[in-house]
Design a protein around this nucleic acid. Structure first.
Lengths: 120, 120
DNA sequence: TCCATATTTCAACGATTATGGAATTATTGG
DNA sequence: CCAATAATTCCATAATCGTTGAAATATGGA
């Protein structure tokens, strides 16, 4: 992952409305939520939300798909995953003991009951 | 973790110089790096760097300690860990299959060879 | 005390960004 | 084709942010 893409994603998430939108979509799962409903749920005007959705999309954090008159937005889990990897990837250079808590936190925060054998 | 703190940390990291500083300190480990050396390594003027270090400090991502004439900065791994947990904490509400790759990525990116039994 | 080094603070400029009103495009149903 | 709904684009304004020169503070050594 390139630095400028990481910046783009961090910038996209570093704004209250966009972070709320992203977390809403993360919670909503792969089915996604229509733009209008996002606006209603978060109390944002539609044109402002449109700009925010555009930023998140350009950052590769969400994707969209038309469904009739609505456009459905969904979180891009791969994009989020890449960012997390980027933020953590240099944490152990010569100091594995330092970021052990980080590793544990990541494992615990990530999915509820994943089999630990999943990591090759 | 509160939303505004997450925003503060994401904002702090969402800037090229600051992300570079943070990753440098993450790589450097707990011994840290003096402000002047950070400036030299990254080619940033000292006053600009001082402002950046202040932002990272206020976000709880780094901490400092005087050593003679120099001030040594070091990454705050706990602060980073909290942010990662916050970003991931809602990813599995009813859809564990979706964020399994994220969990695997987190485990793989985090420390090199941590014993898997470390997670309770 | 005086000087050099290390870092921070202050003030100001230029650039970027978030926001909302108004107009525009796209889709559905009558 | 026309009206209604859904979302986006355009434009202007206000606010925030990064950067730098210059001055100020803190420490160590002579």
């Amino acid at each position: 992952m390139e630095s400028n893409i990481a910046i783009k994603r961090l910038s996209a998430l570093a704004q209250p409305s966009r972070l709320a939108v992203f977390r809403l979509l993360v919670k909503a799962g792969p089915e996604g939520v229509a733009a209008g409903e996002i606006a209603r749920l978060l109390g944002i005007t539609s044109n402002t939300l449109s700009a925010q959705l555009n930023v998140l999309t350009n950052a590769g954090l969400i994707s969209s798909q038309r469904d009739g008159r609505s456009i459905i937005y969904a979180a891009n889990y791969d994009g989020m995953s890449e960012l997390l990897v980027y933020l953590m990837e240099d944490c152990c250079q010569g100091h594995p003991e330092v970021c052990a808590p980080l590793s544990i936190a990541a494992s615990r925060a990530a999915c509820c009951d994943q089999p630990q054998g999943a990591l090759s």
